[in-house]
């Protein structure tokens, strides 16, 4: 065979890198876990974990930080996937954390449980003594993330220090840490939104139905269509009604905007994303608070 036959396309290279990262974590840590949100990125991580560890079980559980504001479709999808995989799921409930005083609900007209997720997650890390957590974050999502390492060190308070990151060279990852400290690991660091969608299409991966075009009751808030729910009912004077929409990310119902779209298959979505003119996180109200919003939340221990 000629050399040209030994060429991998960009998706295969990204896949190989992610599998390598996952195996390093399994080998270097005592108690890793995979943060599973039910969103497409964490679903892709699950597929990569299958590629890294099958026919054996995953050497870690899935952990879902359940805000209580999830789309019901996401929760149903999560439970079905876990059942199919035969893997272990740990649910860290924000409701429970609020009830026991670990976290506080954000008061205000647009209820958000973004901040309440942080202590809930940190509490779960302490309880289960996790020393490494896989997250599905990608560097293309946001400027603060563009500088984050694949192995991202967190101190005993769960904080990220962007000025003092470990150099990360070649494919050698340094997971050494002291008790109480942990590492967030981002196997999809070098993927873009389009790569993720192409991979989902290529691998024929099942995703929650809300990613696909459907009719839904939405209300206009700050120039974006928000799904109405008991957490965010439409007022009498609001611009609201039924629209054909889909979601580009899966966060809480209170902070994830819908986009009008007729894309009803993965191929449609790949085409739409390839032609998209607004970035994915633009549809997340939580990041629009300030320019440095993400950087601040990350420092505190957000994903």
């Amino acid at each position: 065979m000629a050399a040209r036959d030994y060429i991998l396309n960009h998706l295969a290279i990204l896949e190989a890198e992610a599998i390598h990262i996952m195996r390093e974590v399994a080998a270097q840590f005592e108690r890793p876990a995979l943060l599973f949100s039910g969103g497409k990125d964490s679903i892709v991580m699950v597929r990569l974990a299958e590629k890294a560890f099958r026919p054996a079980k995953f050497p870690f559980p899935l952990v879902h930080v359940d805000t209580g504001h999830n789309f019901p479709e996401t929760i149903a999808f999560r439970d079905r996937l876990v059942e199919q995989l035969g893997e272990r799921l740990i649910v860290a409930s924000v409701e429970d954390a609020i009830a026991s005083g670990i976290a506080r609900d954000d008061p205000g007209p647009t209820p958000s449980r973004n901040r309440a997720q942080i202590p809930t997650l940190l509490h779960a890390i302490e309880t289960h003594r996790f020393d490494a957590l896989f997250g599905g974050a990608r560097r293309d999502e946001e400027r603060a993330r563009a500088k984050e390492r694949i192995f991202s060190f967190r101190d005993e308070f769960g904080q990220w220090d962007p000025k003092n990151q470990r150099p990360e060279l070649w494919n050698i990852y340094n997971g050494r840490h002291r008790p109480g400290e942990h590492i967030r690991v981002f196997p999809l660091s070098n993927w873009t939104e389009l790569d993720v969608w192409q991979y989902i299409a290529l691998e024929d991966i099942d995703i929650p139905s809300i990613y696909y075009s459907h009719e839904r009751e939405v209300v206009m808030r700050d120039g974006q269509w928000m799904p109405t729910s008991s957490f965010m009912p439409a007022g009498a004077n609001d611009d609201s009604g039924k629209r054909i929409v889909r979601f580009r990310t899966v966060g809480d119902m209170t902070c994830t905007a819908a986009v009008e779209s007729p894309a009803s298959t993965v191929e449609d979505i790949v085409a739409e994303v390839a032609a998209a003119r607004a970035s994915e996180r633009g549809a997340r109200m939580d990041d629009r608070t300030s320019e440095a919003a993400m950087e601040d939340r990350k420092k505190e221990g957000y994903f």
Binding site: H10, L11, I13, L14, A201, A271, A275
Partner: peptide, 18 residues
């Protein structure tokens, strides 16, 4: 009302290198 852009060529992205 948005429309779906022309189909993204699957064969093309499978040939993309990095």
């Amino acid at each position: 009302a948005p429309t779906i852009p022309p189909p993204f060529d699957r064969e093309a992205y499978l040939r993309m290198s990095l």
